[in-house]
Simulated assay, not measured.
Amino acid sequence: MVEFRGYRLAGLTAASLLAVSLAGTAHAQVTLNVITAGDQNMLDYINDFLAPKFEAKNPGVKVRAVGTGPGDSGSQSVFEKLKAQKANDKWDVDVAVVHQFISGPMMNEGLLAKYTGDIEAGKLATRDSAKNALGANVEGYVMPMFNSQIAVAYNPDMVKEPPRTYQQLADWVKANPKKFGYNGIKGGMSGVGFVTGWMYAFAPSGLGITTSYDANAKSNWKDALASLKEFNKNAVITPGNAGTLDMLGRGEIAMGPVWVDMFYSWMGDGKLNPNTKLVLLGPGMPGQPMYYVLPAKATNQDAAKKFIDFAASPEIQAEGIVKRYNWYPGIDAQHVQKYLDQATWNKLFTNVTPADLATKGKVFPVAAHLKEIQESYEANVTQ
């Protein structure tokens, strides 16, 4: 299983979840149980930000959220908890927040309800990530909580005319050796995402590998991998996601792929040249959403739908997702604009516009193809 960029929170047992879910029920007509894979900030976001606001608008409802752990294992724990209750008439989880990779298996196992057509916010998320999860058609079953996006950061003092496509980047790197850096295929998902975008641009299968598995696709990747090996001769392999940003901040490289939220965190901490900008390369670069999902037999389905609709509403997405965490919203970006001050809007959406996100913000490919890309890189590019 591919290990996506993770979040760090000690896992909680099913017994812990039950204990927390029962706490506070004496004074509430409904306790809405939410479980989330993710870092402490994910849990704090729900308990400290979403819950009080939702409860104020919905008297008699109490929101209780607990975490299941970081990365893939946290989402796997959600999957296993719901599967263990599959035979029960009602389940004790009303809303779950999971990584992209697990949503397809959860849907196929019959653990999720199809619900986004029943909420207003469901109309506001039209990106591929609202429909496609590593090749699984999850349309109707998932609502993106936010979208983490990979883009290329560049220092305009060193790059006067930034490349706008992968082909332009290849030409630029050839003319400016050792000024572009990325973290290969093992140093973090920004590097994996960059390589994936390269395959979208240069492999004959292109973006077709995001929607279905083609057993013949890999056999036609030879030229794309050979061109990437040649590209690497003039590139710098950096030591991880943070390593790319560090080298960029110290002026050792002029460009490199980064996670946008990490980029703005580093910018806010003064670790980057304040003039540093972002560009999303065509035909596209992948990102990784987190999803709100509705368990198929949630005890409080109506309240759960109302909670997700509230959490995905433009005003809440603007205040919580964009302003607090520098994430791109789960809904289409244009819907949050009127709820943001001009400085916040300009920070996130001037270099990478809503139109860029809509046309060039892509999903990762079908899981089997993503694994093949990583294996092919190791076999043909690093050797």
Score class of each variant (00 low, 15 high):
residue 198 W to K: 14
residue 302 D to I: 13
residue 78 V to A: 01
residue 211 T to C: 03
residue 231 F to K: 07
residue 188 G to Y: 10
residue 281 L to D: 11
residue 223 D to V: 03
residue 167 Q to S: 14
residue 276 T to E: 12
residue 50 L to D: 00
residue 250 R to E: 03
residue 337 Q to V: 04
residue 250 R to C: 08
residue 125 A to L: 01
residue 375 E to H: 06
residue 311 A to P: 03
residue 338 K to N: 13
residue 245 L to S: 04
residue 354 P to H: 11
residue 355 A to G: 05
residue 147 N to P: 02
residue 350 T to C: 01
residue 189 M to C: 07
residue 240 G to F: 04
residue 235 A to E: 00
residue 274 P to C: 14
residue 67 G to V: 01
residue 83 K to G: 11
residue 71 G to T: 05
residue 75 S to Y: 04
residue 309 D to Y: 08
residue 70 P to E: 07
residue 123 K to I: 05
residue 2 V to K: 14
residue 371 K to Y: 05
residue 105 P to F: 08
residue 24 G to S: 12
residue 380 N to C: 09
residue 86 K to L: 09
residue 121 A to M: 03
residue 76 Q to I: 08
residue 362 K to Y: 12
residue 154 Y to K: 11
residue 219 S to L: 10
residue 343 A to L: 10
residue 137 N to G: 14
residue 362 K to H: 02
residue 84 A to K: 06
residue 200 Y to Q: 10
residue 112 L to F: 13
residue 215 A to Q: 07
residue 158 M to Y: 03
residue 218 K to T: 12
residue 130 A to Q: 03
residue 137 N to P: 09
residue 23 A to C: 02
residue 353 T to F: 01
residue 210 T to V: 08
residue 181 G to L: 09
residue 293 V to M: 12
residue 209 I to L: 06
residue 190 S to M: 02
residue 121 A to Q: 06
residue 270 G to R: 07
residue 101 F to Y: 04
residue 5 R to I: 05
residue 306 K to I: 05
residue 277 K to Q: 15
residue 190 S to P: 07
residue 242 A to R: 01
residue 140 G to Y: 13
residue 54 F to I: 04
residue 198 W to Y: 11
residue 221 W to N: 01
residue 215 A to F: 08
residue 153 A to W: 02
residue 257 P to C: 13
residue 119 I to N: 10
residue 352 V to Y: 06
residue 3 E to N: 05
residue 120 E to D: 13
residue 63 V to E: 13
residue 348 L to D: 04
residue 176 N to E: 10
residue 312 A to H: 00
residue 249 G to K: 01
residue 159 V to R: 01
residue 364 F to D: 02
residue 109 E to I: 08
residue 146 F to Y: 14
residue 148 S to A: 15
residue 297 K to S: 10
residue 372 E to S: 15
residue 196 T to V: 07
residue 79 F to E: 07
residue 40 Q to L: 11
residue 69 G to N: 13
residue 30 V to M: 10
residue 29 Q to K: 11
residue 380 N to A: 03
residue 360 K to E: 10
residue 174 K to W: 12
residue 90 K to D: 00
